[in-house]
Design a protein around this nucleic acid. Sequence first.
DNA 1: TTGAAAGTTTAGCATAGGCTAAGTTATATG
DNA 2: CATATAACTTAGCCTATGCTAAACTTTCAA
Lengths: 146, 146
Amino acid sequence: MALATKKIPSAKLRSAAFKRVRADHSAELAGDYVEMIADLIDERGEARCTDIAMRLGVANATVVKTLKRLQTAELITQEPYRAIFLTVEGWKMAEDGRRKHAIVEKFLLALGVSQETARIDSEGIEHHVSTETLRAMGKFLARNGG
Amino acid sequence: MALATKKIPSAKLRSAAFKRVRADHSAELAGDYVEMIADLIDERGEARCTDIAMRLGVANATVVKTLKRLQTAELITQEPYRAIFLTVEGWKMAEDGRRKHAIVEKFLLALGVSQETARIDSEGIEHHVSTETLRAMGKFLARNGG
DNA sequence: TTGAAAGTTTAGCATAGGCTAAGTTATATG
DNA sequence: CATATAACTTAGCCTATGCTAAACTTTCAA
Ligand SMILES: [Mn+2]
Ligand SMILES: [Mn+2]
Ligand SMILES: [Mn+2]
Ligand SMILES: [Mn+2]
């Protein structure tokens, strides 16, 4: 009995990590989209479907479908055949994403990997970095001329 | 021209990062499963559906369905109502995953985050770390008493 | 030895996130 | 200003990954 009751919390503790990963992945696509939309607006004044599809490397129809979900989530607004806008909430998420992404990418560079690798790896890693880890990366950057 | 291509990555170059992330995610579940099956076999002699479901925090039926894909991929073998075995390929993938996972987790610890955070964050990060980044983490560990 | 508990599988459903092909709208240009 | 091209949307398909409920098999203990 002692063995059995001990087994349950340990399993629950383990499963927490996988639950976090699944939650991270749920939020990931939305995060990448709003970040990219923010970039497009800043870079060229407006964000269009086609640009997003190009940069993500997916089909146009895929972007359209995803944008509908983002609209439902009130992260963007959009009229048919028009450019895409971020809501206040969308901008907030974009800024948070950019900040986190930048720290992760700079951190990888400071760790000694190439520009190219830092850019690529950070695109996935950024979504799994907790506040605590992000702070540790920030401290490392401060110590190593980030 | 040379300046433009150097400063701003082309759309194709950008999309490569997202394609990598999508590829990482495709491989992720299989990686976590075989690693967990290997752990269960080592810890308790055999791997059963229920244990995997518990540790992942998903329903039993979800595990059954995923195991079928792993069987198709020739990573595991399985008879109805029996324990799960890894193929040679499955063991190889499990060992590679363990090695990578251990380096990422130890690296996070060495960076100064708590045991708990290292355990949780590494579960997601491990799948997005390239060989080059893994090597950089290994070097950091060597320098910092990993 | 047999019946209940535990474990496993099947069936059926849902959502996310991909795709192609075809249709619709906006815009640029001759 | 008319229309060709580019951009966008819709429709319909697919796979992966999750769920619950119900059926089936194995195991264990009375
Ligand atoms: Mn990303
Ligand atoms: Mn792992
Ligand atoms: Mn993992
Ligand atoms: Mn991920």
